[in-house]
Simulated scan of single mutants.
Amino acid sequence: MKNTLSFTTDQQGFVLPYVLFFIALALIIMTANIGLYQNEIRITENQTEQLKIETLLQMARTQFKEDVVDQPNSNHALTYAFPYGDVIVEYTQLSEKKYHLYFTIRTDTGATHNIMDRITPDYE
């Protein structure tokens, strides 16, 4: 006859503490993963906004270069409406071919960013 261990055959719940430990461990891991997932979602949203801002900046710079070549003596603020948002370009002419630009970029989701830049438009 085999010897059985008394603590494994006792009906007072030898397995219960281990089950509770593993359930608690699983809940902690799941909670941590949910928090990480929510952080990844926020990071992705911020990267998307940054990409929109950079796209709007490049579009506004290109449009500004075209507008300044066509109308070099216009007013010192231009507003552009693009699909991802609006850009206000305030500029001062430093020399004949150099401009100091101040971009105010507002995306379609409401994020606002300000950038200063200097450019030299291509005159043809």
Rank of each mutant, 00 (worst) to 15 (best):
L16P: 04
T62Q: 10
Y91Q: 10
L16N: 05
E49M: 03
A60S: 04
Q38C: 08
Y91C: 02
D86M: 08
T104C: 07
L51E: 07
N114E: 10
S6N: 15
Y102H: 14
Q50I: 02
Q63T: 04
R61A: 06
H76L: 01
N114K: 13
Y84H: 10
V15P: 09
A26Q: 13
I23K: 11
P83G: 01
P72M: 04
F14C: 04
V69I: 11
L27S: 08
T4P: 05
Y37C: 12
E54N: 05
T31H: 11
E66F: 00
T112Q: 00
E66D: 07
L56H: 06
V15H: 07
N39M: 12
I23Q: 14
T79F: 13
E90D: 15
E40A: 15
T79H: 13
N114G: 09
Y99M: 08
F7R: 14
Y91F: 13
P72R: 01
T112H: 09
Y18N: 03
F21E: 03
I23D: 02
E49R: 00
I43P: 05
H100N: 11
D70N: 08
L36W: 06
M30I: 14
I41F: 08
I115E: 10
L101G: 06
H113A: 08
Y102F: 13
Y91M: 12
V19K: 09
N39W: 11
T9G: 14
I53K: 00
A77M: 12
G85L: 00
A24N: 05
D70K: 09
F64N: 01
F22Q: 07
Y99L: 12
T31S: 14
F14A: 14
T79Y: 14
A24W: 09
T48Y: 07
D10Y: 14
D86N: 15
L36F: 15
S95P: 04
L36A: 13
A111C: 01
I41H: 11
T79P: 11
Y37P: 10
G85H: 03
Y37G: 09
G13V: 04
F21G: 06
Q12R: 15
K65T: 02
F82W: 09
V87R: 01
Y37I: 14
T112I: 04
L56I: 02
K52Q: 06
T48H: 12
R106P: 02
L51F: 09
Y80L: 04
L101I: 02
N75M: 08
T107N: 07
E54S: 06
G35E: 14
H113P: 00
L78E: 00
K52G: 02
E40C: 13
Q58P: 01
F14R: 07
Y102C: 12
